[in-house]
C-alpha cells in the first residue's frame, strides 16, 4: 500500500499548514503544500490526491466573515470539482478556519448533495476569540473515518465557532441523521450548550460536522494542535500516573484514521 497523497491547502492568512502537514506525515501520509493560486491555475491536480486538508488560520484576515473570502474565491472554479472529488472517493478535512471555509462553500453539511449554505459558523456568544481546551465526544455519524464513542481533549481557538443551522428542524436533523460528528461535553460527558465546556454557545453542542457520504469532516477544535503527547495540557499527570508518555495526543486519531481509510480503499 502506498502512502496516500494529501493536499494541504495554503492561502493568504491560513496559518496552521505546517502542523497539519506534520500530523499527516506522522500518520503515514505524503502531504504537499499547494497554494490556492496554484490550485486555481491547475485545478485538475486535485485528482492526483487522496485527501484534501484545509487548515486553520484567518484566511484573508477573516474579513467580512470568517472563511468567506476564501470560500468565495474557491466557489466558482473549485466548488464542483471538490464535490466530485468527494463523490469519487476523496477525503476532506477542514479544521477551524478550514471548517468555516467548507461551510461557506456549502460542502458541509451538504445534506442534499448540492453546494448550498445550510449552516453557518458565527460569532461566539462572548463576542470574542477564545483559546481553551475542550472535551469532545465523537458520535455515531456518517463519517467514514472518525470512530464513535471517543472522549477527546482538543484545544478550541476561535472567535466564530457557533454553529447555527438555517432552522431548528435542520439543527435536529444534523444530530438525528448522523451529520454531527462530535459534541462539546461537560465534566459528566454530557453534551452541553454551556460555557466554558461549550466555548461558543453552539446549540446542541456541535463541534464538528460531516457530509452526506461521510467523507468530509469539519471540526472547530484543533486535532492539529493535540496530536503529540506533549501537546496535551496535563501530560505531566499522565507521565506520573503511567510512568511514561503515550505515543500520541488525542488529535492523532483523525490523521491516523484518515490515512488508514485512504490506504484501505487503495
Amino acid at each position: 500500500m502506498s502512502s496516500p497523497k494529501v493536499l494541504v491547502l495554503r492561502a493568504p492568512g491560513i496559518n496552521c499548514e505546517r502542523e497539519t502537514h506534520h500530523a499527516f506525515t506522522r500518520a503515514g501520509g505524503t502531504p504537499s503544500f499547494v497554494h490556492i493560486q496554484q490550485l486555481l491555475a491547475a485545478p485538475t491536480q486535485l485528482d492526483s490526491f487522496r485527501i484534501l486538508a484545509v487548515p486553520g488560520g484567518f484566511s484573508y484576515g477573516d474579513d467580512i466573515s470568517s472563511g468567506r473570502v476564501l470560500a468565495q474565491e474557491m466557489k466558482a472554479q473549485l466548488g464542483c470539482r471538490i464535490l466530485q472529488f468527494v463523490e469519487r472517493g476523496g477525503l476532506v478535512l477542514g479544521i477551524c478556519n478550514g471548517f468555516q471555509v467548507l461551510v461557506r462553500l456549502g460542502l458541509l453539511p451538504c445534506t442534499r448533495g448540492t453546494l448550498a449554505e445550510e449552516v453557518t459558523l458565527t460569532h461566539n456568544l462572548s463576542n470574542h476569540y477564545e483559546c481553551r481546551w475542550v472535551t469532545l465526544k465523537t458520535q455515531k455519524s456518517r463519517c467514514v473515518f472518525l470512530p464513535s464513542g471517543l472522549l477527546l481533549r482538543w484545544p478550541a481557538a476561535h472567535g466564530e465557532g457557533r454553529l447555527v443551522a438555517r432552522d431548528a428542524t435542520l439543527q435536529k436533523l444534523l444530530l438525528d441523521e448522523g451529520f454531527a460528528t462530535a459534541l462539546y461535553v461537560d465534566e459528566n460527558g454530557q453534551a452541553t450548550e454551556r460555557y466554558p465546556h461549550n466555548p461558543n454557545g453552539t446549540p446542541l453542542g456541535f463541534a464538528g460536522l460531516t457530509n452526506r457520504n461521510g467523507r468530509v469532516l469539519g471540526v472547530m477544535p484543533h486535532p492539529d494542535r493535540s496530536y503529540l503527547p506533549t501537546h496535551m495540557p496535563n501530560w505531566r499527570h499522565t507521565q506520573l500516573s503511567r510512568g511514561s508518555l503515550p505515543d500520541d495526543g488525542d488529535g492523532m486519531v483523525v490523521f491516523r484514521e484518515m490515512i488508514k481509510v485512504a490506504k484501505a480503499e487503495g
Binding site: N15, C16, R18, E19, H22, G56, H128, Y129, E130, C131, R132, P155, A157, H222, D224, R225, Y227, L228, T230, H231, W235
Partner: peptide, 13 residues
Amino acid sequence: IRQYDHEVQAASA
C-alpha cells in the same frame, strides 16, 4: 490569556 492563541504552530509543551 484566553483571548490569545497560545496553541497555534503546535509547539506548546
